[in-house]
Write a protein that binds this DNA or RNA. Sequence first.
DNA 1: ATGACTAAACCTTTTAGA
Length: 260
Amino acid sequence: MQLATWNVNSLNVRLPQVLDWLAANPVDVLALQETKLTDDKFPADAFAQIGYNAQWFGQKTYNGVALLTKAALPVSDVVKNIPGFTDDLARVITATVADEKLGNIRVVGAYFPNGQEPGSEKFDYKMNWLKGLRDWLKVELQTHPKLVIMGDYNITFDDLDVWDPVALEGTIHCTEEERYQLRALIALGLNDAHRLFPHPPKTFSWWDYRNMAFRKKQGLRIDHILVSHALKEQVSACEIDITPRKNERPSDHAPVVLTI
DNA sequence: ATGACTAAACCTTTTAGA
């Protein structure tokens, strides 16, 4: 089974690239972030034509998430955003998928807040959101031991995830406060699937559009797939696919693919 | 240089992303 996550930075712009990528990478589940579409505009028909069902939760201009699943894969118990945490923004979509081999897997697709700058109102919102997510996930893991949470976390784990850890020390995505929250998620009983395997240095999932950052390997690893302990031993790979970042008009993020 | 690029909307300028 393969599950993937991709921040597409506007599904309106990136739909052809998502369809092409799925044709070449027919994953069972694809979580999308930053669709930037109201629900009436979601291109469910285009995905149906290539054999995918979709669950979506969006809003105008910003944010917006979706879960695409192969049509043969049963999907149930869809939840939008974080139960118990009031949020005006469309950031999370969750569903249970029934895999023939693995059984029921709870899949969370999430677009974590950016946070803008330490000390800002948006940073405070990011911290509150992370606490809300953790409180909910703790309960969710009790009822769904096989759980995957994937998406754009907007947080690096440590210096290995940062192209210039000295220059970017303490800046957004790299603060100790954010990393503490990320470790607190891990402490619930989750594992960073990417770090279960060796990877070359400068393996990133996001590169700034400016300054030829992709060409210069000046990126961050901020898109993550966390798997619960019950799934950890069955993970056989977790790779970032940088090929779509080489497209014309690419998203600034690359997809991350989990094989389980 | 509170910059660079991209996307969306209140669209020739601002907001947000990361």
